[in-house]
């Protein structure tokens, strides 16, 4: 958090742009060009899906360049793009290094997959079979991801400093408690619900088709996703004399920070993707996050220096309560020493 030991800012940012935006653009550009050269007629039918017994799905040839564009350029650009603003602001974290590397890796995967699948079918000399295409694409994605990670300077964590919050003034005998909820953002909640409904519908449909194996799998996935969604949607939050307790509405996961282990509390503006690599319950080096949306969050730093971040509308009040609890604990310890 000090300015004395800052990385040369433009080098970190430049490398991130190279790796996370330029590489995907070049790769997908080359891949789409190759595909267009190989495909004579964009409307011709090509195999688009392989089952255990060989090809079982067909579609027009233009599906491949479109898939390359979406999976190889649009999605990676969104991922890498989320890291650019924080980097330009001077923030640093392994997540901000990971996002561009992930973008390069994804771009490689989609470019190689789509191009390989096209070339096995319409190319003049390349007929390796789809198994090899898969192996090569995933292998290349792994290698490119690793190189993209290594090509960027390592980043010591510099996150926006939490704004300190004044402890709530409390009398020596006063007891404070804050009880409330941390909830998923409305858009994310709607997306999760529709995903669950969709999966449930899919499960019912596969049962109706009497394909028992597929039905069992889709049902299992539907139940798993619904459980995960339930566990990540609403958290009960309690700040009292014992410290901070955060518990999912379904009981698990739960987090407890004893009052004695609170080193400092503050309010922070959090960006899920850039700071924690996504949303939900996130465990990253140096921090644990319950990140249900972007925006105002409570930050509690533990005695070990590890940060706990929880997105909360009324983060300032909770921080003030925990500050008072911490102060009264320290006061109590002092009194005990004097006795």
């Amino acid at each position: 958090m000090s300015d004395t030991h800052r990385n040369p800012a433009d080098r970190v940012l430049r490398r991130a742009v190279d790796v996370g935006l330029l590489v995907p653009a070049l790769l997908t550009g080359a891949a789409i060009a190759l595909q267009l050269v190989a495909i004579d007629d964009l409307a011709q039918q090509l195999v688009t899906h392989w089952g255990p017994e060989g090809p079982d799905g067909y579609g027009p040839a233009w599906v491949y360049p479109v898939m390359t564009l979406l999976g190889g350029l649009v999605l990676p650009s969104l991922l890498a793009g989320s890291a650019m603003r924080p980097l330009a602001r001077g923030e640093r974290s392994p997540m901000l290094r990971l996002m561009p590397a992930l973008a390069a890796s994804l771009a490689t995967l989609f470019s190689a997959l789509a191009t390989g699948m096209v070339l096995t079918q319409v190319g003049p000399s390349f007929d390796a079979g789809v198994g090899w295409v898969l192996a090569l694409a995933f292998g290349a994605a792994g290698v490119v991801g690793w190189v993209a990670w290594a090509a960027q300077p390592s980043q010591d964590v510099i996150v926006p400093a939490a704004l300190p919050v004044d402890a709530l003034g409390a009398g020596p005998h006063e007891r404070l408690a804050w009880i409330g909820r941390a909830e998923l953002g409305k858009g994310a909640g709607a997306a999760l619900v529709s995903a669950c409904v969709l999966l449930a519908g899919l499960a019912v449909w596969t049962w109706a088709l009497a394909d028992v194996v597929a039905a069992a799998i889709t049902t299992g996935v539907a139940i798993l996703v619904a459980l995960l969604a339930a566990a990540m949607t609403v958290f009960h939050v309690r700040a009292d004399r014992t410290g901070l307790t955060v518990r999912s509405a379904v009981g698990f996961p739960r987090f407890t920070i004893p009052a004695a282990d609170i080193a400092s509390v503050g309010v922070i503006d959090v960006a899920g993707l850039a700071h924690f690599g996504g949303w939900g319950v996130r465990v990253i080096p140096g921090a644990t996050g319950v990140i249900l949306r972007n925006g105002t969050a409570l930050e509690v730093t533990r005695g070990s220096g590890r940060r706990f971040v929880l997105t909360l509308d009324d983060a300032a009040t909770v921080a003030a309560v925990l500050g008072a609890v911490r102060a009264s604990q320290a006061g109590g310890a002092r009194d005990a020493d004097q006795d």
Partner: peptide, 9 residues
């Protein structure tokens, strides 16, 4: 919701 009490009050 914030609740504060003082048992000595």
């Amino acid at each position: 919701m914030l609740i504060r009490i003082d048992p000595t009050a």
